[in-house]
């Protein structure tokens, strides 16, 4: 979704209310409004490919289920962010399980040749693991601010605020705090 298509006229709470009443166009607008945030959150847990598709599907299924009982529709963005973190973290575990199962069955003949060196792969995996563990240790709203910072560089402050429930003028300072926390956590995990 580009910022041009973001429905600036309707608030998230209005869209959630109309979607709960069965308005399909409002449902589409609602999920378009948060699709990039959900993708950023899924990526920051290291979930890719079909696993990422599964996690994104489940987030929208959970939202559809949640619409009727929604208590604070004005905070729907941060509800979606929390749900996305939860489902992405679970999906990351499912994916690691599936890889472990495959490894237990032995190499497949049709596996593509991997030209990356074992060293660069190892370092990359270590950094990814460090980020994943840091994300798991960081709480909202810093966690989602970081996900957007990493995978949606240049996201407007209004979008970050909408996805986290922060006030517009808090976004910059929370981002600064979140970056520092990530730096410290990655440093600790090196030791």
């Amino acid at each position: 979704m580009s910022d041009q298509t973001r429905d600036a006229t309707a608030s998230a709470a209005e869209l959630a209310g109309r979607a709960a009443a069965g308005d399909h166009a409002a449902w589409r607008d609602l999920i378009r409004r948060y699709e990039l945030m959900v993708d950023a959150v899924v990526h920051c847990h290291g979930v890719t490919g079909l696993d990422a598709e599964d996690a994104r599907q489940t987030v929208w299924c959970r939202l559809a289920e949640h619409l009727d009982g929604i208590r604070s529709p004005e905070r729907i963005g941060s509800w979606i962010a929390r749900t996305a973190h939860r489902e992405a973290a679970l999906q990351a575990r499912l994916a690691r399980r599936a890889r472990a199962l495959e490894a237990a069955e032995g190499p497949r003949l049709l596996d593509p040749v991997d030209h990356r060196t074992p060293e660069s792969e190892f370092l990359r995996a270590e950094v990814d693991r460090g980020v994943r563990e840091a994300i798991a240790a960081i709480e909202e709203p810093e966690r989602t601010v970081l996900a957007l910072d990493l995978h949606r560089p240049g996201a407007p402050a209004a979008e970050v605020a909408d996805c986290t429930g922060l006030a517009l003028d808090e976004v910059a300072s929370v981002r600064r705090r979140a970056r520092r926390r990530l730096l410290r956590l990655l440093r600790e995990s090196d030791m």
């Binding site: 589409r28 990039l36 993708d39 990526h43 598709e53 559809a64 990493l150 995978h151």
Partner: peptide
Amino acid sequence: RRGRPEAGPMSERVVRAADGAF
């Protein structure tokens, strides 16, 4: 950021799943 993908829109399959759940 250098080694990580930028967030992108949903695939058609994810949109269909969302509509199915709705």
